[in-house]
Amino acid sequence: MIPFVDLKAQYLSIKDEIDSAVLQLLASTQFILGNEVKSLEEEFADYCNADYGIAVNTGTSALHLALLAAGIGAGDEVITVPFTFVATVAAIIYTGATPVFVDIDPISYTIDINQIEKAITDRTKAILPVHLYGQSADMEPILEIARRYNLTVIEDAAQAHGAEYKGQRLGSIGDIGCFSFYPGKNLGAYGEGGMAITNNPEYARTMQMLRDWGQERRYHHVLKGYNYRMDGIQGAILRVKLRYIEAWTEARITHAANYDQLLAKSSLTLPRVMPYSRHVYHVYAVRVPVGHATRTPQRDALQQSLQEQEIQTGIHYPIPVHLQPAYADLGYKLGDFPHSEAASREVLSLPMYAELTTEAQTQVAKAVIASL
């Protein structure tokens, strides 16, 4: 079996350090927040070239608190994309605001910068670009539009740890950047976790209070807050793993280049690295052509064939948010965002993780080509 992600292989490669860090954390009894989480905040913010890190329990919580810190609430609108994990949109709705979708660019899979301005209304308060699959959205035009309309920019960098835009680390470019430490992420916890980063001290202070019941200090509740605190054990684990993220990222980039070579003559559309981007390949997503006779996607047949050959794959994402039943009340319909809809029918993510071997990649590539 070639797994889609091999979390066990990663753990075994750093087992002694992880085990030691966990045991020290247990002995400290700092189970919620504490010194390990504080150190993680400082180290991850420094890694991203940001001034402040606010550790929370999930990436979704990071997005929620970022929006609240920026003053987003009922009656406001936030521009984002429908081709993303549902948490991006859920966080907007949690604040009482309304998500307003624009389509993706079909090459980068990130927000189409040419469609943003026409989606702005007098209720628009923020733009929430998603750095999908480990590649940056085109941030300069987004920031320029935001400046002209006095909008906040919150980066959904849940899949983009260490990714860059023109040499600048993602998450530190907009007003606030939000990361997920879900186990399968490039920097993953052994459980749930997330982080917001910012250069704005007021945003940082607000998010620090909001994550911990709105407390300025113990039992002094300044804001109506939430229980979004990070566990100490996740802080300890992530601090160990943060020391390896650059080596793991370079391995992913090497694996992607190898896939590019192995699949160059196939009928697949391979990932394209945009000229402004350091792509960190959270996933290696290819596009499977549709059948000419029936115009039906062949992606599902390819996935089934690979599964039969014991090769695991993923689909990120099979249904764009605007077509999910839970979000039907937003009023969108099939055909509203054709590039997002086409991608959802065609994308397939191949196995990708730092420990992936060249032999396994060759086996994957041969199976893909034979199945097309």
Results as ranks from 00 to 15, higher is better:
D76P: 08
I120T: 01
L63C: 03
N57K: 15
I245S: 09
Q115D: 07
F337G: 02
R272S: 06
T29F: 12
L334I: 06
R299D: 06
K224H: 09
H220Q: 14
G34N: 06
V78E: 01
G96N: 02
I142S: 00
I93G: 01
Y219R: 15
K241R: 14
E155A: 11
Y327L: 11
V22E: 01
I113D: 08
A69N: 04
V130L: 04
Y47Q: 03
A285T: 09
A367F: 04
Y281S: 05
H282V: 00
M1R: 08
E216S: 15
A27R: 15
Q361N: 09
A74H: 13
L7K: 10
V273L: 09
Q30H: 11
S13Y: 02
P141T: 09
Y11I: 00
A160R: 00
A55I: 11
N150C: 12
V240E: 00
G53K: 01
I92C: 02
Q298M: 14
I93L: 08
T313M: 14
A360N: 10
A163V: 04
A367L: 09
E246V: 13
V81W: 01
R243Q: 10
H131I: 01
V321L: 13
A119D: 03
D46V: 09
L33M: 10
P351F: 10
D51K: 14
T88H: 02
R169E: 04
G193D: 00
E42D: 06
A360Y: 05
T84P: 08
L238F: 00
T110G: 09
T121R: 12
